[in-house]
């Protein structure tokens, strides 16, 4: 077989960046040689810093995923991810947005079909944690608004979702698995689960929503009217109880405001 010539080293930050994420790439031409040699181990310090710090950022964002697959598997998997998806933004608090979807299509992890769903939960928790601080719209505030709306206009009410609200739907019992992994005593049963993540004030809270809840809240947070959201939920779940879902949503601080019908 013909021998492939070693790639030509280039200079500057493009070459430096390329060599950081590819251990087979040559050390940039402008890096000072030591005793006539490219300083492999010195350059390796930067290679390691970049890759290990990014793996560590993923590990702190996805601790339950790491526990589920074990440290060795997680670090190897994350090592592949960080090379395929290096961060765009300098804010490590948000690194790894694409990780849940990527995990779902990562062949070596396919024996753990719920892994991506658990990652979605962890991502949602991280986003809720850093979301804007806005006082949730209270039951009392709602009652005050509702008292000024004619009954026939009630279906036209639209709510604004609290900025920390995240909804996760999975075909797997990801809420129960997360809870079981994080010190809560819950049975983990076969079947999909819908989860609502919210941080109305200081603490991130997570609740499994009953049938219809996910669809109702998704529609409400997309700005649909109360009637449309209720109809979507009813279409999915017969006997959807609007009053109890609306009460629970208000008591959980899911909304930050309501828009009364105009005119």
């Amino acid at each position: 077989m013909p021998k492939t010539p070693p790639p030509e080293a280039e200079a500057g930050q493009a070459a430096f960046a390329a060599a950081l994420l590819d251990a087979d790439a040559p050390i940039p031409a402008d890096v000072a040689k030591i005793r006539g040699q490219a300083p492999e181990k010195r350059f390796a310090v930067y290679r390691n810093n970049v890759v290990v710090s990014l793996i560590s950022a993923l590990a702190s964002a996805y601790p339950t995923v790491k526990r589920l697959v074990g440290a060795q598997f997680f670090d190897a998997m994350a090592g592949v991810y960080v090379r395929e998806h290096p961060p765009i933004s300098p804010m490590m608090i948000f690194y790894g947005a694409a990780f849940p979807g990527w995990v779902e299509s990562f062949p070596p992890a396919e024996t753990v079909p719920y892994l991506g769903g658990v990652a979605r939960l962890e991502r949602a928790r991280r986003e809720a944690y850093h979301a804007a601080d806005i006082e949730p719209f209270t039951m009392e505030q709602f009652q005050a608004v509702a008292s000024g709306v004619a009954p026939e206009r009630m279906p036209e009410l639209r709510f604004t979702a609290h900025p920390s609200l995240r909804l996760v739907r999975s075909a797997h019992p990801v809420f129960s698995i997360w809870a079981d992994q994080n010190g809560h005593d819950v049975p983990v049963r076969q079947g999909g689960e819908d989860v609502m993540i919210i941080r109305p004030r200081s603490e991130v809270t997570m609740r499994q929503t009953p049938p219809g809840g996910f669809t109702f809240l998704s529609a409400m947070s997309a700005g649909q009217t109360l009637a449309a959201a209720a109809a979507s939920a009813e279409a999915e779940t017969q006997g959807f109880d609007l009053a109890s879902h609306l009460t629970a949503a208000l008591e959980s601080g899911v909304f930050s405001g309501v828009k009364a019908p105009e005119g």
Partner: peptide, 8 residues
């Protein structure tokens, strides 16, 4: 980080 030998 961790020096000269590892994942990077």
């Amino acid at each position: 980080g961790p020096g000269t030998t590892c994942a990077g």
